[in-house]
């Protein structure tokens, strides 16, 4: 597996982490009501969106490099 393939897996896991962080933040905000948790929720969603955009850009940019 090349660095390209590993990087795609890494970005996918990072997106999942960001979404998890967002879910945690929103859940904590709804149950405890602290604004810092709302920030985590919004920040997590933005990070996930940013990573998805980056992932698409990365795939397009390195389309000529092998996955092996």
């Amino acid at each position: 597996m090349s660095l390209k393939a590993f990087h795609i897996i890494f970005v996918a896991v990072s997106v999942l982490l960001s979404l998890g962080l967002a879910a945690w933040g929103f859940h904590r905000f709804l149950t405890l009501g602290k604004s810092i948790h709302l920030l985590f929720g919004i920040g997590g969603l933005l990070a996930a969106a940013g990573l998805l955009v980056y992932g698409r850009y990365f795939l397009k940019k390195l389309k000529n490099i092998s996955y092996l």
Binding site: L3, F6, H7, F10, L17
Partner: peptide, 11 residues
């Protein structure tokens, strides 16, 4: 590849 592994562990 090593660096990605180290970062993945942290994730």
């Amino acid at each position: 590849l090593f660096w990605h592994f180290v970062d993945l562990v942290w994730i």
